[in-house]
Amino acid sequence: MPTLVGVFAQPKDLGDVAEKLRTRGFTDLEIYSPVPSDELDVALDPGPSKVRYFTLIGGLVGAVTGYAMAVLMSEDWPLIVGGKPISSYAPYTVISFELTILFGVLMTVLGVFLVGGLPYGKFGKTDVAYDPRFSAEDFGLVVRCKERDVAEIDALLRAARAMEVSLVEA
């Protein structure tokens, strides 16, 4: 499938042309960006990131685990001090709090791997459209299209102030 890469200096130009291409029905797009950018985050995938569910689930599981572990283990080996109840929620909140954070963090990192698709590709191999300049200061827009659309997309990219447009795969 023909693959075109447009190289841009400004993320805004790239975001605009990506939007334009999507409305014209060219949806097989990919963006390479050297820096995080709020506008590019939503250019191809509008809506909030799904990492949030990972964090939420991790945190809730951690909170429950913390209390459950402390209560079950102290009931299993009762240390009775001054005839007071064995389980005590104030100190166990510390354990529960720490596990909320721990499980939340572990699940969030799992989230960045699963949602972000990491690890990506074969070892040492980058995509054919990828170029080291996209880890410098340039932004790349990759369009995979039908052969008959190549010229049209090429023109669109150039019109959107692409510094250069190349066909990396015929």
């Binding site: 954070i101 990192v109 989230g111």
Partner: peptide, 24 residues
């Protein structure tokens, strides 16, 4: 890990850094 700075990777990464900050 095969990072190429695709918008999918950055989006997940941004959200993760935010959440890790919120937790930390």
């Amino acid at each position: 890990l095969g990072w190429q700075g695709t918008s999918r990777q950055w989006k997940a990464h941004n959200r993760t850094v935010l959440h890790l900050s919120g937790l930390a």
